[in-house]
Each structure stands twice: as structure tokens, then as C-alpha cells.
């Protein structure tokens, strides 16, 4: 398993053909208390960079872009009742959606954990 990061603060964890996507701890911290998350429906076709989900805090709404292309396997249903999961465990229980990857090579353009940490440190 390996985890990659985008400049827009999404993370994607790849396990074979299946990848899980969420937003980073840094992003969750910047947004503040998350009050609503809208995740994509199963079967939705996504192309890298598409708006895939929406995350809302009290005073901001942000689009979440998919870091890689693929077909949505499931959205995280737990977020509907408990959007606070994104604040409590953004890079674990607070994941947004899973998808089957179409093209592994897209991952090469993403940052690894160290590079992302360095990127955030500069912000």
C-alpha cells in the first residue's frame, strides 16, 4: 500500500486496483469544523481533477478533486451522519470515497508523504 498527496490537499491510498481518497489533516484544520460532506455515488466515472465531492464548514464550501481517474466503488456513508469524522480522523475514518483506478501512471505526478510535508511547511 502506498499513499500519495495532491497540491489541493487530497490524499489517495492505493491498495492493488482500489484506491481510497480523502482530505489531509492540514486541509481539515484549515477548514475548521466540518458540517457537511457530499460524496459521489457508486458507479460514477471520474477523470483526474474532476470535482468529486464537496466538503462544507460553517463559513466555507470546497470542492474535493479526484487525484486519479476511475470508477467510484463507494462513498463513505458514515460522513452523512457524522461529518465530524473528517476533523477527528481525516486520513483514516474520515475518508471520502473509494474508486477502481483506470491508469496507475497518473499517480506518478503526485507527491509522497515527505514531499507533501515539505510542501505544507512552505505554505
Amino acid at each position: 500500500m502506498s499513499r500519495y498527496f495532491t497540491q489541493e490537499h487530497e490524499w489517495i491510498e492505493v491498495d492493488g486496483e482500489v484506491a481510497t481518497v480523502g482530505i489531509t489533516e492540514y486541509a481539515a484544520g484549515q477548514l475548521g469544523d466540518i458540517v457537511f460532506v457530499d460524496v459521489p455515488e457508486e458507479g460514477k466515472q471520474l477523470t483526474k481533477g474532476d470535482d468529486a465531492a464537496v466538503v462544507e464548514s460553517v463559513k466555507a464550501a470546497s470542492d474535493v478533486y479526484t487525484p486519479a481517474s476511475g470508477t467510484v466503488l463507494e462513498g463513505n456513508a458514515a460522513l452523512a451522519d457524522n461529518p465530524a469524522l473528517v476533523n477527528e480522523d481525516p486520513e483514516g475514518e474520515g475518508w471520502f470515497f473509494k474508486l477502481t483506478l483506470r491508469d496507475d501512471s497518473e499517480l506518478e505526478e503526485l507527491m509522497d508523504e515527505d514531499k507533501y510535508a515539505a510542501y505544507v511547511a512552505r505554505l
Binding site: S57, K59, A61
Partner: peptide, 12 residues
């Protein structure tokens, strides 16, 4: 639920 509104959502 003001994120539905335009002063936050702008074109969305």
C-alpha cells in the same frame, strides 16, 4: 446552512 448561498458559494 449558508454554504448554499451565493456569498460563499459564488458561482455554485
Amino acid at each position: 446552512l449558508s454554504t448554499r448561498e451565493q456569498h460563499i458559494r459564488r458561482e455554485k
